[in-house]
C-alpha cells in the first residue's frame, strides 16, 4: 500500500527529469491509438494522465516502472514530476511488481465487525505471508483495503477487476485455489478493463476479465 504523503519509494524513485538514453517507448500501436482517443475527450492532453497511467500499467506488465512514468510524461507533454506525483497519490497504481493475483481484503468498518480480520489471518496463514507481502512464487499479494463499498456482502475481497463478496475464513481457501488456476483478474487485465471502459464503443469488444454482457 502506498501511504499518501509518505514517499515509500525513496530508494527506487530518483527523479530523472529527462528521458534516459536507455528508455525505449513501450506502448504498442493499439495503446497509442487508445491514448489518443482518450486524450480527445478532454480539452487538454494533460487531463488524460490517469488513463494514460492505466495504459502504462497494462503495457508494462502490471506495474509502473520509472521508465513507464517517463513515457507517460513524454506522451502527454507534461513533466515527469507531475506524472510521478499522480502515480504516487492513488492507491491503485502499482509502483512495485505485484503477485499474479492481488488480494485486497476490505477491513473497513462493516467488514471489520463482520470478521474481515479473521479472513486476513486465514489468508496470511494459508499463503504464509503477512499483509503487504507477496508469496515467494509470485502468485499472490495480500493487502488490506479501505471500504470497497459493497458492505452489504461483507467481507469483500477485490482481485483485479472483480469483487468477491461474502468471503469468510472457511471459503477464502477455495478462493485462493480457484485463483491459482485462473488466468483472469490479474493486475494487467484490471488496467485493460479500466482503459477499455473509457473508450467509446468498447463494450462491443470487451476487455479485462469479462464483457459487459457477462456481469
Amino acid at each position: 500500500m502506498i501511504q499518501n504523503g509518505i514517499n515509500t519509494l525513496a530508494d527506487s524513485y530518483i527523479t530523472h527529469p529527462v528521458a534516459q538514453p536507455e528508455d525505449k517507448m513501450q506502448f504498442s500501436e493499439e495503446a497509442v491509438a487508445e491514448l489518443e482517443e482518450i486524450i480527445s475527450h478532454y480539452p487538454e492532453r494533460k487531463a488524460a494522465c490517469l488513463p494514460a497511467l492505466w495504459i502504462a500499467q497494462r503495457e508494462y506488465g502490471g506495474h509502473l516502472t520509472p521508465a513507464a512514468i517517463r513515457e507517460v510524461a513524454t506522451r502527454l507533454g507534461t513533466s515527469q514530476t507531475e506524472v510521478e506525483g499522480v502515480a504516487t497519490f492513488y492507491t491503485m497504481y502499482n509502483l512495485r511488481p505485484r503477485g499474479r493475483h492481488h488480494l485486497e481484503v476490505c477491513t473497513c468498518l462493516t467488514c471489520a465487525v463482520m470478521g474481515a480480520y479473521d479472513v486476513v489471518h486465514a489468508l496470511e496463514h494459508a499463503l504464509d505471508i503477512s499483509i503487504g507481502e507477496t508469496t515467494a512464487d509470485g502468485e499472490f499479494t495480500l493487502s488490506e483495503a479501505e471500504c470497497l463499498n459493497y458492505c452489504g456482502n461483507a467481507t469483500v475481497v477485490q482481485v483485479g477487476d472483480h469483487y468477491f463478496p461474502d468471503i469468510s475464513p472457511s471459503n477464502c481457501l477455495n478462493l485462493v485455489e480457484e485463483l491459482r488456476k485462473s488466468e483472469k483478474y490479474t493486475p494487467a487485465l484490471l488496467a485493460d478493463s479500466l482503459v477499455k471502459i473509457q473508450t467509446p464503443g468498447a463494450s462491443l469488444k470487451g476487455g479485462g476479465s469479462f464483457k459487459a454482457e457477462e456481469i
Binding site: 492513488y90 491503485m92 471502459i197 463494450s203 464483457k211 454482457e213 456481469i215
Partner: peptide
Amino acid sequence: RGEYVEPAWQLRK
C-alpha cells in the same frame, strides 16, 4: 472510482 469496474462496464455498454 477505479474499483467499480463491473458497474463501469455496464455504464459503458
